[in-house]
Nucleic acid binder design. Sequence first.
DNA 1: TTGAAAGCGGTACCAA
DNA 2: TTGGTACCGCTTTCAA
Lengths: 341, 341
Amino acid sequence: MAARLKDIARDLNLSVVTISKVLRDHPDISTETRERVLKRMKELNYRPNLAARALVTGRSYIAGLVVPDLVHPFFGQVAKAISSVLRKKGYSLVLSSSEDDPELEQQEIDQLLARRVDVLIVASTQSTVETFRRLEEQKIPYVLIDRKFDELTANFVGVDDEAVGALATSHLVEVGCRRIAHIGGPKVSTAIGRADGFRLALRANRMSTPAEYVVMREHGDDAGDASGYEAMKRMLALKQKPDGVFCYNDPTAMGAMKAVLEASLRVPEDVAVVGCGNVAYADFLRVPLTSVDQQSDAIGDRTARLALGLLEGGAPAKAKMVLLEPKLVVRASTMRHKRAG
Amino acid sequence: MAARLKDIARDLNLSVVTISKVLRDHPDISTETRERVLKRMKELNYRPNLAARALVTGRSYIAGLVVPDLVHPFFGQVAKAISSVLRKKGYSLVLSSSEDDPELEQQEIDQLLARRVDVLIVASTQSTVETFRRLEEQKIPYVLIDRKFDELTANFVGVDDEAVGALATSHLVEVGCRRIAHIGGPKVSTAIGRADGFRLALRANRMSTPAEYVVMREHGDDAGDASGYEAMKRMLALKQKPDGVFCYNDPTAMGAMKAVLEASLRVPEDVAVVGCGNVAYADFLRVPLTSVDQQSDAIGDRTARLALGLLEGGAPAKAKMVLLEPKLVVRASTMRHKRAG
DNA sequence: TTGAAAGCGGTACCAA
DNA sequence: TTGGTACCGCTTTCAA
């Protein structure tokens, strides 16, 4: 159906090679021929078959991106930022969602490899590094984002999660919280790093926290996360309630806030709440939410640059680790008295 | 780098054809040969080059999806739903974002066509139908979603936007609003349809509305949409303030709510607010937002089925139009007295 | 400046 | 049951 080089060549009594050269702006083509060819291309609405081209050049000009959840605004933002950088260099971004399922992630990666993407970008949900070792064996360039693996010295771009936890927690200390809790996430590097940062900050402030004040959840990422709600509810039932809580992410924080308000307590006066992610609507919540920004645009931008470097840069170079500094955005959910110490 | 049929054939002293047959579960291969081949494939971590296959079969097994905004939860949800149906049939979904820019949309479509997608799914931001006429000429199957064109009898899946407007507006009437305003969207079918529904519902209730009560915005889709805020602010400055407002979408409604609250008025007592989209966090807003659900999952599901039908179904069939019924989700932002009439 | 031939990694068709 | 040959649409190399 679609026009091919061959069609144009036939119509113009030229060879396929000549047309191909015009297509790629090859210098040694007479202006006249070039004109004729371009004219005919336009008439036929010609589009080179990129699959065929990829087959011979060995470059698909596709970057594959696998994220755990397309609907999560963080990943959407990152994808948008990556795409806008890559597009300028002629690359397409093929997006896949793993739905936070390691097996599905594996399938999606296989699919992308079968399409011979030039580079793979993954926010992985795997618990082992096997997949990535195999990528290395096959010399397929890849960049991890958001979640990293200690066992792996791979290219990585993400926010410094320990800093996230420490930033949020010290802020709670600063606004006068004395019994600070943490509702954490599943067993991935982001959640673990943030929990570590939480503990570090407490120690730095010579504070400690009872075991019941730290909960690591299994799943849950929806707005008003049910497990954040449950976890908070349980903490509020303790004889010593916490007066501040740092939540793994914003949805969790929204769930926690709901629990606090339902218990007829006030945010931030009785319990101050900090989330992470800085979702666009944080300002419009029942109590505007203080949150640690994850720098999604910066992550996307750096990731895309790194990926391009892997593709264009000749030298293999060793794995590059980009750790971005998180930023705290203070809103009503932690605005109580200043420095109570 | 990656293994090819040829490599396996050489290693096993077989022909490429035989390996290819094993790959595709062709019946006439001896069990023994099959075993040997499969074993070697596993060892080499063989993955068929889909681009090469596409070249000869003429089918890429790729569906292309172009949306105006990846970060918008509605499109994210739709993409997820489409993808999950297509994946089961062996299709990959390649996602592009047009950033609400008609030119960029055109580029993305071209890019997808160059990759020879089997079918195109577009939530178009174009103002003319030229692009789609060309698709028809080239016999490339496509499905429009969300936004439609009157000039075009194309496959379409979306919610009934007139019904959206009517549903929201009658609800406002029912809860006792007497001066109902509408903050609409840009000049695309969704916004126009919802505004039409708004007018219809008013007429059906023998109500009318001053011109200042209807605003159609140009752009804006972020959480707490600035133009929703501005529009509402202006209306609140009128001598006769509206007592209810139907907003084009949820972000707009959030902006409008902000304006109402800042004016020291109450939602819903002074001004009731209805949005559209039913975002996941609607329940957690300063005032939980009544919203018309757009059925993103159903849209995705029906779209994917329709697309598959276009691909697998032999008969060309005539354009199919799927109009889904919207559903109202009532929350605090409109919970005032019942039927004041 | 132009083009013939070979080949990228597969599949289809038909013969052995 | 197995394989030879041609070919998908394009680029590369080298010769004319």
